[in-house]
């Protein structure tokens, strides 16, 4: 099992400034799955509760001179502490090393100790070299790597309709405030391109309706909607016509997930998985300087749905 690569400046920036801070908001650790072509950060994908997040990069998006070999179909997976990895990358940036090499090593403090696995980041300058060892878990056995791969494959199922969130930071600010009103957030997505957010308690019912958003997937023309209807009636009408889905999620989990704005996405979408399985937030990135989707980077969050009566 070998892994060795050189981190590009863009790759360090991508991880240290954007993706790791966002993932740190939802958890302290994540799995890293390295394959021949991709580097994938997976948070909480082996659990059924809690927010799941999957960030996938092509190896070229982060590394150059990428070498990997493993007896598990050339796949290596382990768990890493996001804070430690982030700190190691941050200090490597400040050292301005000419070459930033990353590799998987096993070291032992004493000859009698069992060797411990590390992700070693080596910053090689003209005059000095600084080595930082980030402790990681033992590489996962084949069966767990298969589980990760299965979770990854399952996560490819997209909702039939995704609506584009106009301003992620504004949405974050709104839901952050709704968090003070109630614990359960009702999220509705219609094929007309409407996104409904609603918190209801015995004392208050408060919500927001985002209308005529850009839709990915199945879309229905909203011109036929009765103009006299109010927002809840519009949602009810869409539900009656099977043109909408509504799920309840934990508002705190939604707030944490919306901190994905740290990754500076160029477009963000929200949708409800088939059979109301989860709420999906999907982020899209453009090739710098263009408006073309950068397929080398992807990130999405899956929020578990609360059953009726929960909370």
């Amino acid at each position: 099992m070998k892994f060795r690569a050189v981190l590009t400046d863009y790759g360090v920036n991508l991880l240290e400034r954007r993706f790791l801070p966002a993932l740190e908001k939802i958890g302290k650790t994540c799995h890293i799955l390295l394959t021949q072509h991709h580097v994938i950060l997976l948070h909480n994908v082996l659990n059924t509760s809690g927010v799941q997040a999957i960030a996938q990069f092509t190896k070229e998006a982060i590394f150059e001179d990428y070498r990997l070999s493993s007896q598990y179909d050339d796949r290596i997976a382990f768990t890493v502490d996001l804070g430690l990895l982030s700190r190691a990358l941050k200090s490597s940036v400040s050292m301005d090393g000419d070459l930033l090499q990353i590799k998987l090593v096993k070291k032992r403090a004493k000859i009698t100790d069992r060797p411990t696995p590390y992700l070693t980041i080596e910053s090689k300058g003209f005059r000095s070299a600084v080595v930082q060892d980030v402790p990681i878990s033992q590489p996962m056995p084949r069966v767990e790597v298969e589980e990760l791969q299965a979770a990854l494959d399952m996560a490819q199922d997209l909702p039939r309709t995704l609506v584009q969130v106009p301003n992620l930071m504004q949405l974050h600010a709104l839901v952050e405030r709704l968090k003070n009103v109630g614990e359960v957030l009702e999220v509705g997505v219609t094929q007309y391109g409407d996104l409904h957010l609603q918190v209801s308690t015995t004392l208050v019912s408060i919500g927001s309706e985002f209308r005529n958003l850009r839709v990915l997937g199945v879309r229905v023309d909203g011109n036929s909607i009765d103009a006299t209807l109010n927002s809840s009636e519009r949602l009810r009408d869409a539900l009656d016509k099977s043109l909408a889905s509504v799920v309840k999620v934990d508002v705190k989990q939604f707030v944490k997930s919306l901190q994905c704005h740290h990754t500076k996405p160029d477009a963000s979408f929200c949708g409800i998985a088939p059979n109301d399985g989860c709420l999906l937030i999907m982020l899209q990135y453009f090739i710098p300087g263009t408006r073309q989707t950068d397929n080398s980077i992807s990130l999405h969050y899956r929020l578990p749905v609360l059953l009726d009566g929960a909370n």
Partner: peptide, 11 residues
């Protein structure tokens, strides 16, 4: 301004 409708009913 973005045509987003926010509403609340407080008992």
């Amino acid at each position: 301004a973005n045509n987003i409708c926010h509403s609340a009913e407080i008992r």
